[in-house]
Simulated scan of single mutants.
Amino acid sequence: MIGTACLIALVAISVSALLNLYRLGAGPDVLDRILSLETLVINAIGLVVVIGIWFNTSLYFEVALLLVAVGFLSTVAFCKYLLRGNVIE
């Protein structure tokens, strides 16, 4: 039963990631592309968590935490670069 639910979740998150890739390529503005990239990171985190549930191991949850940290820092760096023109002052 849990295998079927994980498979359905993997398909749904994968479709969402493909739609985010479309928005990343066709975004009319830089801010739309940054938001699409952040949403793509969230989809990747969701995929990793579902795979961790499916394989019944906690290693994937640590990978998800690392993805959260990298995704947050990259979004902050992109926004800071757009506002000020540099990341490190």
Rank of each mutant, 00 (worst) to 15 (best):
A12W: 06
G3K: 06
G27M: 02
V15A: 15
N43D: 14
C79P: 01
A5G: 10
S36Y: 00
A64V: 07
V48T: 13
Y22N: 09
G52D: 10
A12K: 03
S74T: 15
T75I: 05
I34G: 01
L37D: 03
L7H: 11
L47Y: 05
V50L: 02
L7C: 11
L19W: 04
E38I: 06
A77C: 13
V11M: 13
N43P: 05
I2W: 14
A5M: 11
F72V: 14
F72N: 04
L24R: 11
E89M: 02
L83E: 12
I53A: 14
I53H: 03
E62C: 01
G46I: 03
A64H: 04
L21I: 12
L67K: 05
L82R: 08
F61W: 09
G46T: 02
L21C: 08
V76N: 06
I45A: 03
L82N: 03
P28H: 02
Y81T: 08
V49F: 04
G85T: 07
V76H: 02
L59K: 05
F78W: 10
A64K: 04
L31N: 02
S58T: 13
I51W: 10
V50K: 07
I13C: 00
L82I: 07
M1I: 05
S36K: 07
E89D: 11
A12C: 13
L67A: 04
F61E: 06
A69W: 05
A26F: 09
L19S: 10
I88S: 12
R23W: 03
D29Y: 11
L37W: 01
L10D: 08
V68S: 11
F61S: 01
A9T: 11
F55T: 09
E89R: 13
D32E: 11
L40A: 12
G27R: 03
L31S: 09
I34Q: 05
L67T: 00
G27C: 08
A44Y: 10
L10R: 06
L82V: 04
A17V: 12
V11W: 08
R84W: 10
F72C: 09
A44S: 13
F72D: 02
K80W: 03
A44H: 01
N56W: 01
L31G: 04
T75V: 09
L18P: 04
A9G: 02
I2S: 13
V15G: 11
R84G: 09
V50H: 00
V76F: 12
D29G: 07
L82D: 00
D32T: 15
L24Q: 06
R33K: 10
A26I: 07
L18A: 15
L82K: 01
V15I: 15
A44L: 15
F61A: 06
I8R: 11
R84S: 13
S74P: 02
V30G: 05
L24V: 08
A9D: 04
A77V: 08
N20K: 06
M1S: 14
V87C: 09
S74H: 06
